[in-house]
Design a protein around this nucleic acid. Sequence first.
DNA 1: TTCATAATCGGAATGATTCCTACTTATAGG
DNA 2: CCTATAAGTAGGAATCATTCCGATTATGAA
Lengths: 149, 149
Amino acid sequence: MKSEQKPQDIEQTLISRLRDKGYKLTPQRREIIRILARDESHPGAMDILREVRKILPRISMSTVYYTLDMLKKEGFIKELEFYDTENRYDINVSDHINLVCTTCGKITDFMSDVHSFSESVEKETGFRPARMRFEYYGICRNCAGRNGR
Amino acid sequence: MKSEQKPQDIEQTLISRLRDKGYKLTPQRREIIRILARDESHPGAMDILREVRKILPRISMSTVYYTLDMLKKEGFIKELEFYDTENRYDINVSDHINLVCTTCGKITDFMSDVHSFSESVEKETGFRPARMRFEYYGICRNCAGRNGR
DNA sequence: TTCATAATCGGAATGATTCCTACTTATAGG
DNA sequence: CCTATAAGTAGGAATCATTCCGATTATGAA
């Protein structure tokens, strides 16, 4: 369920990959990356802003969006949109299913071989899948436990 | 791939179900439903407004949203959100995969037994899936053909 | 240390959606 | 057929996440 790598490793890999690509490593970026690597709840832009401001109180929302955009374009994070809440960002870019709890809002990853459909889709329809987005909305174990069953 | 029923049947079923539930059948509603039943491209609210205005030029955006909301709450349509475009509405409420063409923007339905993951998710994580959203983003047959391969 | 330019900041603009209020109309019952 | 009334509609204002813009700042290469 969890990422294979430790947060620190993810963070370091990302930073050196950005350096290689010629991006400037500002304190703002380092902090945003640190949070993305550690926060497993798939934070939104505002969550990230709040969190970064604990360290860098003057960071602006523009910078958060600018950085998220850059990371997205480089394929380091995934952006997810939902029905009734802001976009969320996921550092796990491998194909997986997101389990979205409709009670507490937490999103967890479910790794699995999710490629089984891909082939039959292409064979039957001619549509060529490039990327996917699979989600289940429901009640997580935690929330189910709390309300009896 | 296509719905099992004819557009006219879907339309009539929906209308009589609304009547049974005590909803008023205004011309605006009839027209919105007519479009949803016939338009297989999963139109957005603005598409629907434009289309309805050909018949009812004075219909407002509020009415479109109000009606879509009502249909959504009653479970007659599904609302879909995407990365870079407005919400889209789907009269196919059964579980299926949406194939989103990133070239032309068309969305088609892929019916299939998409419940295979549901059980293992619950077994392995304790998360109880209620509804799902599976999407592939890629190139549809039409667009692939146009560009050589 | 200097410099070019990418990154940051703050605020304004955007655009889909929601909300609000007054007006209109579909339906049920007389 | 008429009327009452609650539901529906229109139009515009408000909201809010996101994008855009111009001015300022600071990273990293020379």
